[in-house]
Amino acid sequence: MTRQSSADSERDARSVLDGKRRGRIVAGGLGLLLGLWFSWYTWSTVPFGTQDRPGAGVFPLVVGIGMVVVSVMTIVEALRTDQVSGEIRFPTGEKRRTVLLMAVAMVAFVALYQFLGQYIASSLFMITALAALGTRSWVRNVVYGTAIGVAISAFFMELLGVRLPEGLLGPTGVIGGLFL
């Protein structure tokens, strides 16, 4: 698809659709789909009211159509001009492994946050992250990770009195429940 459209571009010297321009065409395409879906969904489910008392659907419909317009604008801009251009660099090899590992650890941290609770979840996350980013000494990672995780949690929960999930250590958790 992108190869054909590059032929349409007027200035041949700049007609190469590089990574960023291709990426923005994709972003514009996604935005276009989002805008169309959003407009349709608003039209069919949100009340529009009357001119006297406009309903909750009026503004979102304008926004949905606006999304379609700016998406088309983004695509056209990327196709016909090179205001934004260049290659997108993604990490490779070792770096890619680190980034993916961190992303997975982050998602796991969030997914288990409420179940494990602030103390356990953040310590486990810190240990994993230190292993992914830092040295290979597991003893060091476990000690540092637990220390930082517990310190951060204690600072917020105990010193500042912020209410955070207690998870397993809470009164209804598996571990905390044993000691009540």
Partner: peptide, 14 residues
């Protein structure tokens, strides 16, 4: 565990 004690005490305190 150490943190549970801290947790209980500090919840009472703050």
């Amino acid at each position: 565990g150490a943190f549970a004690v801290a947790s209980a005490l500090a919840l009472v305190a703050c």
